[in-house]
Nucleic acid binder design. Structure first.
Length: 297
DNA sequence: AACTTTTACAACCGCATCATT
DNA sequence: AAATGATGCGGTTGTAAAAGT
């Protein structure tokens, strides 16, 4: 049987739109509205596929489109929404007024994705990459086999939960590459941090896909954000407001995700409780998808 | 200045889903 | 219920501009 093509492509123009074509499309849509894209090109006097017209209108010509660079807040929002919604760009775009799914998708692929990878974050899972954190062999070889610190402890389970340790790991990696002597000094200085982390040892690591439950009362003075948000602060850019997944004192549902980091007064102690109500990630995801209310409305 | 490589983004393509007949 | 058409979505490609050599 097969589907009929969306339009007869013979004689139709492809490629970049000219200002004249934009004008024709804009004029037509402003007068008649954007309905029936298949018949629109003929009526508007365009040698284009209806699909191409729709895309041009929704991604470029629509009057409510915000142009220009993404703000830091928008970028953080995209990262946080992506950690929940994945590559559902339209759902993400629905929460960023003036931005299109195509624009967000492009920005993700060209900017955000690369930045996350640079910071050792897997852009798909939003979790720290194991190859980034497993620096044990690298560092041990760098300090000529000396066992100044137990690097395995430093980069083990706590590293996933302790922002200080992740930051330290990042610094050490840079020093290892640029100045091994200072690295040695740095390792000695941070011995205390490693020891302290041992004392504040976190509960057993969450297994992949395991639910993490966050106690509301514990959130009164802190914020739960994806680790990607925290890591992005390593970049020489200004940080801004609180994360999207802020906790509050109310009895709202709370949720988190494996490998998320607790940023609070005592970041080495995760806020995990066993008897708290929580919302599964899937449930949250479906809620977000079904209610496209802009975040900043 | 010329050439090559990288980056950014607009546009295209095929598939999925929804609506209509 | 099935067939067909219209639209939406995400992945991918093409290409102009910028950066590097």
């Amino acid at each position: 049987m097969g589907r009929t093509p969306c339009c007869d492509k013979t004689g139709l123009k492809k490629g970049p739109w000219t200002p004249e074509e934009d004008l024709k499309l804009t004029n037509y849509v402003q007068i008649h509205g954007p309905g029936n894209w298949r018949s629109l090109p003929k009526k508007a006097g365009l040698q284009r596929c209806g699909k191409s017209c729709r895309l041009r209108w929704t991604n470029y010509l629509r009057p409510d489109i915000k142009r220009g660079r993404f703000s830091f807040e928008e970028e953080e929002t995209i990262i946080q929404l992506h950690s929940v919604l994945g590559n559902t760009w339209s759902a993400i775009a629905a929460r960023l007024p003036g931005r299109t799914d195509n624009e967000i998708k492009n920005y993700w692929n060209t900017h955000i994705r690369k930045r996350l990878l640079r910071n050792g974050i897997d852009p798909v899972t939003h979790a720290p990459r194991l190859d980034f954190l497993d620096l044990s062999s690298i560092l041990n070889s760098t300090v000529c086999g000396q066992s100044l610190v137990n690097v395995s402890n430093l980069l083990g389970a706590q590293a996933l939960l302790n922002p200080q340790l992740v930051r330290l790991a990042n610094t050490l990696l840079s020093l290892k590459q640029d100045n091994p002597e200072i690295l040695l000094q740095h390792l000695q200085q941070n011995q205390q941090l490693c020891d302290k982390s041992q004392e504040n040892l976190a509960p057993p690591l969450l297994q992949p896909n395991q639910q993490l439950q966050v106690h509301p009362s514990a959130c009164s003075t802190s914020t739960t954000v994806p680790c990607t948000s925290m890591l992005s602060q390593m970049e020489p850019m200004q940080t801004s407001g609180e994360g999207f997944f802020s906790c509050s004192n109310s009895q709202e549902t709370f949720f988190s995700k494996p490998n998320y980091i607790q940023c609070g007064p005592n970041p080495t102690v995760p806020l995990v409780s066993e008897n708290t109500n929580y919302q599964s990630l899937d449930s949250l995801r479906s809620t977000l998808i079904s209610s496209p209310t802009p975040l900043n409305s």
